[in-house]
């Protein structure tokens, strides 16, 4: 059986909020290392990969592999019943029909319990190799969100160009064009504001801003975001979570003009 307790329901609420507009029905794959999720959007252009390691829970118990097929809009309805600071316990039997979510208030005696019916989801799973990216940009997540929002007003797509000079987000639209260039920046007082560019070779790729803006819904989960690029491979946008856990988004590049 599965029994996993999170100190704060907020983590799962934010994760589900960040991915529910991209993917609808997902398997939460549970085993003794934690809870993982991989799902592609309907158009097979973007992929969500989440890993919540067992260390993120206390306690965590999962005796055998269990796939919890859950509709994210149903999960959202139930998670709305939890306060951010509630303790969240997820329970399921070995061959479950339902998953049980229990919310306990940390400062009162309220205890809420909900069951969500599970679905059989036959999900395609992609093998994503460990990749050495040509460029990795680490920047404040709100800054990335703002750039995507600002450029979305002008265009549907953005080119991201990394050189030793910095990273340039540029777009071209009907009303005109725009570009934001960031250089490496180190702020000792506010390390959250740091911008780091690791570059082994220059990269230039074009992506849909609609998808990037969607990924930015995860901005509340981490103060900084890693944007990993290599020519002619999908972009990786990674939000690091506590206990070596993560929420990653992959996006296929646009090719041809």
């Amino acid at each position: 059986m599965l029994e996993a307790r999170l100190e704060q329901a907020e983590l799962l609420k934010k994760v589900v909020d960040a991915i529910k507009d991209l993917v609808q029905d997902c398997n939460f794959d549970c085993n003794d290392s934690g809870v993982a999720l991989q799902a592609m959007d309907n158009s097979h252009v973007a992929l969500v990969s989440m890993m919540l390691k067992s260390e993120a829970f206390s306690p965590f118990r999962c005796d055998r592999n269990i796939a919890l097929g859950i509709n994210l809009s149903s999960l959202t309805k139930v998670l709305r019943c939890a306060q951010n600071n509630d303790i969240l316990t997820v329970k399921a039997e070995d061959a479950p029909d339902v998953v049980n979510l229990m919310f306990e208030s940390s400062d009162s005696d309220r205890l809420s319990e909900y069951d969500i019916k599970l679905m059989d989801i036959d999900q395609e799973h992609l093998g994503i190799p460990e990749t050495e990216y040509a460029a990795t940009v680490t920047m404040p997540s709100p800054e990335f969100q703002r750039i995507c929002r600002d450029l979305s007003a002008l265009s549907e797509s953005v080119s991201i160009e990394c050189t030793k000079e910095g990273v340039k987000f540029a777009c071209n639209g009907d009303i005109g064009s725009g570009a934001v260039t960031l250089r490496s920046h180190s702020d000792v007082e506010n390390p959250d504001q740091n911008i780091k560019i690791d570059l082994t070779e220059p990269v230039a790729l074009t992506f849909s801003l609609k998808y990037l803006s969607n990924f930015c819904k995860a901005s509340g989960l981490a103060k900084s975001v890693n944007i990993c690029l290599s020519n002619e491979v999908p972009l990786l946008v990674e939000y690091g979570l506590a206990a070596n856990s993560y929420l990653r988004f992959y996006l296929a590049p646009k090719i041809g003009d």
Binding site: V45, G127, P129, A252, I255, D257
Partner: peptide
Amino acid sequence: TPIQNDLSEFYTMV
């Protein structure tokens, strides 16, 4: 207009 690629062109199904 650039064409958005399918992810399965880059990664194989497992």
